[in-house]
Design a protein around this nucleic acid. Structure first.
Lengths: 211, 211
DNA sequence: CGCCGCATCGTCCGAAAGGTGGAAAGGGCG
DNA sequence: CGCCCTTTCCACCTTTCGGACGATGCGGCG
């Protein structure tokens, strides 16, 4: 019997995951929670599980929230409790997936995966295997080819303003530097991202979840 | 007894909605589907329902897909079958909500709404009342102030490509028109959106969920 | 029928952005 | 101590954009 913990802040999705798990003869839900804190408290309090199903977008509500994110929760669960974490989320940007995998997630699935694939993934995770959905793997491979993300803090700052639609001049005034500096940063950014223009750089940044 | 139809392309979410509905003594699921076409076919074939729970992001997969979107499906269901549609979706941009409401949706909820609120919304929808979540109402009010979105189909097409980082020249070749036309469209777009540059227009478009 | 919105194209010109090739100052590291 | 990276800045030049006109044809609407 595989003991599963559900960690998702959407009640509906939680109910759906429960329905899938309960529909399998060889697994059951032993705990269900809507916050990362609660999940960790339960595990710290002696809770035992074979697999944790976790929404990566845990606590995504506000920018000022001090709540734990899905990636941090994943890392803590994996390292402190040696429990496999299967990340199940709705939309997956490249950065999301990478963050989950780097945090030690055992698997990554999108919520539109068929229930049968989900059940298989849970069994694999419980057995310690690393499972990534076919589309996820494709994304990761495409992602690896492009070196990306060696951007310095300053460059990222500039890139963010570019993606917000500011002109070089506006960015220069906002960062208290000259236009030449902004252009210089932008040139470096485009080199690192392999883009041809500011707009393309902004689009790429968004696509990779770097904003 | 309230007869409910589930229309969502995420199996997990569908299972969750079913669990919520089945947990209520006064309602039941009479049909469940993952595509808008199937939903319409079922209704056209004589299927009767008191409420349709529908994911707005129906068939959001590819740009080249000929599948029906959630908004179109909503409009068809409401007008052809006089059945209340309760839109339940994960992330709701202003444009999404507006599209749903304009298409005639009876209600709009986010998936992170508590199950009890969802059940209440279903009863309200079945009774013909229009129910919008508190946060949704707040968004709508803020949305009304900005004029926006009188963009023509062609202009939107151009805007999408701009947001994807294409140059005017690339867009012109992609749409089989001259660069002058692209610039003309772009000028109109910036006038309508009140933006000063292509990048700002792209940023605004994203913010308003027009992509 | 005229008017308006839409889509298409054109020219001209100035402004913005991008590319090239520097340079200088500071920090970190072997 | 040199070496590299980051950040800052400069000048020069080319490409691209954006604004300001105008012009055509089409379709809907009163």
């Amino acid at each position: 019997m595989i003991d599963v913990v559900l960690a998702d802040d959407h009640p509906v999705v939680r109910a759906g995951l429960r329905a899938v798990v309960d529909g399998q003869p060889d697994m059951r839900v032993v705990h269900e929670t809507g916050t990362a804190e609660d999940l960790l408290a339960w595990l710290d309090g002696g809770g035992r599980a074979d697999v944790v199903l976790l929404d990566l977008r845990f606590g995504d509500a506000g920018p000022g929230s001090t709540r734990l994110g899905g990636a941090e929760a994943t890392g803590t669960v994996v390292h402190r409790h040696a429990t496999p974490v299967l990340v199940v989320t709705t939309y997956g940007t490249d950065a999301d997936i990478l963050a989950a995998v780097e945090a030690g997630a055992t698997g990554y699935l999108l919520k539109d995966a068929p229930t049968e694939e989900l059940a298989r993934a849970i069994r694999s995770a419980a057995a310690g295997e690393v499972i990534l959905g076919a589309d996820v793997q494709r994304r990761l491979l495409g992602r690896m080819r492009s070196p990306g993300e060696n951007l310095s803090a300053r460059e990222l700052e500039v890139l963010r303003l570019v993606a917000a639609g500011r002109s070089n001049d506006a960015i220069a005034r906002e960062l208290f530097v000259s236009v030449a500096t902004v252009k210089s940063h932008l040139a470096h950014i485009s080199t690192k991202l392999g883009t041809q223009s500011r707009t393309e750089a902004a689009a790429t940044a968004r696509e990779r979840g770097m904003l």
